[in-house]
Simulated assay, not measured.
Amino acid sequence: MKTLANRSRQRGLSFIGLVFMVAIVVAVVAVGAQSVPIFLENQAIKKAANKAAAEGLTVAEVKASFDRAAAIDDIKSVSGNDLQVTKVNDKVVVGYEYSREIPLVGPAYLVYRFKK
């Protein structure tokens, strides 16, 4: 009788629980692995936009400078034509807006929206 009481007090993770936890970890790692390049590209876009704003004086110069940097850094999400170039107090300000999607399952997507 004492062994039956000890058996009911056992704690731990069952096999099905372990499989469920592994599935969740794999899903998180898979989404994370697809998200890293998106965030790295966003950093490259920020860098190229800031560089283009510093180098260019006209809208055409800013867009051309961004396109040169985009070719070097392999930026595909934004081109020079997608930039919003304005002047504030004689300073060139470059903005952009874009989104990227990661397909999850069936019709479900994870959407990242970036705006500067």
Score class of each variant (00 low, 15 high):
Met1Ala: 14
Lys2Arg: 15
Lys2Gln: 15
Thr3Ile: 15
Leu4Arg: 13
Ala5Pro: 03
Ala5Tyr: 11
Asn6Cys: 09
Asn6Gln: 13
Ser8Pro: 08
Gln10Asn: 09
Gln10Phe: 02
Gly12Ala: 07
Gly12Thr: 05
Gly12Asn: 04
Leu13Arg: 03
Ile16Asp: 10
Gly17Trp: 08
Leu18Val: 08
Leu18Ile: 10
Val19Asp: 07
Val19Gly: 10
Phe20Gly: 12
Met21Cys: 15
Val22Ser: 07
Ala23Tyr: 08
Ala23Pro: 08
Ala23Cys: 11
Val25Ile: 15
Val26Ala: 14
Ala30Asp: 06
Ala30Leu: 14
Val31Met: 14
Ala33Glu: 05
Gln34Phe: 12
Ser35Cys: 09
Val36Asn: 07
Val36Ser: 06
Val36Pro: 03
Pro37Phe: 08
Pro37Gln: 09
Pro37Thr: 11
Phe39Asn: 07
Phe39Ser: 07
Phe39Glu: 07
Phe39Asp: 05
Leu40Lys: 09
Leu40Gln: 13
Glu41Gly: 05
Asn42Ala: 12
Gln43Met: 12
Lys46Arg: 12
Lys46Phe: 10
Lys46Thr: 11
Lys47Asp: 12
Lys47Ile: 09
Lys47Arg: 12
Lys47Leu: 12
Lys47Gly: 08
Ala48Ser: 05
Ala48Thr: 01
Ala49Gly: 02
Ala52His: 00
Ala52Tyr: 01
Ala52Ile: 02
Ala54Phe: 15
Ala54Trp: 11
Glu55Ala: 15
Glu55Asp: 14
Gly56Tyr: 04
Gly56Ile: 01
Leu57Glu: 08
Leu57Ala: 06
Thr58Gln: 06
Thr58His: 08
Glu61His: 01
Val62Phe: 01
Val62Glu: 00
Val62Thr: 02
Lys63Asp: 04
Ala64Met: 02
Ala64Pro: 00
Asp67Arg: 03
Asp67Met: 04
Ala69Arg: 01
Ala69Trp: 00
Ala69Val: 01
Ala70Leu: 04
Ala70Met: 05
Ala71Gly: 07
Ile72Thr: 13
Asp73Gln: 14
Ile75Asp: 02
Lys76Tyr: 09
Ser77Asp: 06
Val78Ser: 00
Val78Asn: 00
Ser79Phe: 05
Ser79Leu: 04
Gly80Glu: 01
Gly80Thr: 04
Asn81Ser: 14
Asp82Ile: 03
Gln84Gly: 07
Thr86Asn: 07
Thr86Ala: 12
Val88Gln: 08
Val88Phe: 03
Asn89Glu: 02
Val92Phe: 01
Val93His: 01
Gly95Val: 01
Gly95Glu: 02
Gly95Gln: 03
Gly95Asp: 06
Glu97Leu: 13
Tyr98Thr: 05
Tyr98Asp: 03
Ser99Phe: 09
Glu101Phe: 10
Glu101Thr: 09
Glu101Val: 10
Ile102Lys: 01
Ile102Arg: 02
Pro103Met: 11
Pro103Ala: 13
Leu104Trp: 09
Leu104Phe: 11
Leu104Ala: 10
Ala108Trp: 14
Tyr109Pro: 01
Val111Asp: 04
Arg113Phe: 00
Arg113Ile: 02
Phe114Glu: 05
Phe114Trp: 05
Lys115Asp: 13
Lys116Tyr: 10
